[in-house]
């Protein structure tokens, strides 16, 4: 029996052994199991490097001007810092704040409205969206299949030099699932490696009281949608999750995003309306519209955060910054 169990766990490990290194594996030992099915797309070094190259390749856009990295910059948690909504080719603007690409293997859906139900099909959106790359899947496949270099890399990664929709999209997932952030000061604190300051400790206490029911540690997100009561921007008229489900109670609900690396991922909220973290905390502490019928039940309690509390909470949020993630050269522009 024991041998059988060992055998099974060995098989389970083998599906994702190329995914992350031993250090990270020990850092996430107590985390929930990833949702991404590595069995269907086992991560290899060749596949990861191919996905990385595609991620940084502007030839994927219709006019060869922007790559994925234009809206997802590593140093800012793979989001578009300083831009309220994302920008595409020819200066076209989208309607939402580009999301961070952090710990995606634990997400059950993607986009602010959760419209994408599997990581492997997510990349179709930026490739084909009018306000992003405005290209077609067919054009991208024609491009990589006409490149001798890509053909060799697809062969090394997937055993077939001709890229298909499947191998192209799985290559992206090999890179994006590898963007694991698990070594922030908070992580080091929970592992007993560093101490928190008194301010950070108070911030953690406040976070556990007021924030952790939605932004759940250790991932600091939920795979769920809620309305935080923000008034609708009439120029965007974005009803969020309702646009996907057409269920009335989903109106104005948006993804509950991860807060990891939030110090660097400004601006904030689905439409990027807040530039400063202190504005976000102040909004939750002082400005929630309690009679807004869409407001999440979890926010229907006054937080009573003093100015000092708000500062302490921000000090805690800054412990979610993971410099080994933001400056990991493995995730940067390929050499």
């Amino acid at each position: 029996m024991l041998i059988a169990l060992v055998g099974i766990s060995a098989i389970l490990v083998s599906f994702n052994e190329g995914w992350i290194d031993d250090d990270q594996r020990s850092q996430i030992a107590d985390w929930p199991e990833p949702i991404y099915d590595f069995e269907k797309n086992p991560i290899t070094e060749e596949g990861f490097q191919l996905g990385r190259k595609l991620f940084y390749d502007p030839e994927l856009s219709r006019d060869n001007t922007i790559s994925c990295a234009n809206c997802h910059l590593q140093y800012t948690g793979f989001t578009h810092v300083d831009h309220a909504v994302s920008h595409g080719i020819e200066g076209r603007k989208g309607t939402r704040n580009s999301p961070v690409l952090i710990n995606l293997a634990w997400n059950s859906s993607f986009h602010w409205d959760g419209g994408v139900n599997h990581l492997d099909v997510q990349a179709l959106n930026p490739i084909e969206h009018f306000a992003e790359m405005d290209n077609t899947l067919k054009n991208v496949l024609d491009y990589v299949n006409s490149s001798k270099q890509y053909r060799g890399e697809f062969f090394n990664a997937f055993g077939d030099s001709v890229a298909s929709s499947k191998t192209l999209l799985q290559a992206f997932s090999q890179f994006t699932t590898s963007l694991v952030s698990s070594n922030s000061k908070y992580d080091q604190f929970t592992r007993g490696e560093v101490e928190f300051t008194a301010q950070e400790k108070n911030g953690l206490k406040l976070f556990d009281q007021h924030c952790n029911s939605c932004h759940i540690a250790p991932l600091f997100n939920s795979n769920d949608f809620a309305s935080n009561g923000l008034s609708i921007d009439p120029t965007l008229n974005d009803l969020g999750r309702y646009g996907i489900t057409k269920v009335g109670t989903d109106s104005l609900k948006f993804r509950i995003p991860t807060l990891r690396n939030i110090e660097h991922t400004y601006p904030y909220m689905h439409d990027g309306r807040y530039r400063k973290l202190r504005e976000v905390v102040k909004y939750y502490a002082d400005e929630l519209d309690q009679i807004n019928p869409y407001l999440s039940e979890k926010l229907k309690a006054d937080m009573h955060l003093t100015e000092t509390d708000q500062k302490d909470l921000i000090a805690f949020l800054c412990t979610l910054t993971d410099r080994t993630f933001l400056y990991n050269r493995r995730f940067g522009f390929p050499n």
Binding site: K40, V116, L119, E128, S164, S165, K166, I244
Partner: peptide, 20 residues
């Protein structure tokens, strides 16, 4: 089931990307 092949390949133009 994510990305599929054959007649289910999204390149066939029968797949919605924004609402999988």
């Amino acid at each position: 089931s994510g990305i599929l092949e054959g007649d289910l390949d999204p390149i066939k133009g029968m797949y919605w990307a924004w609402n999988s």
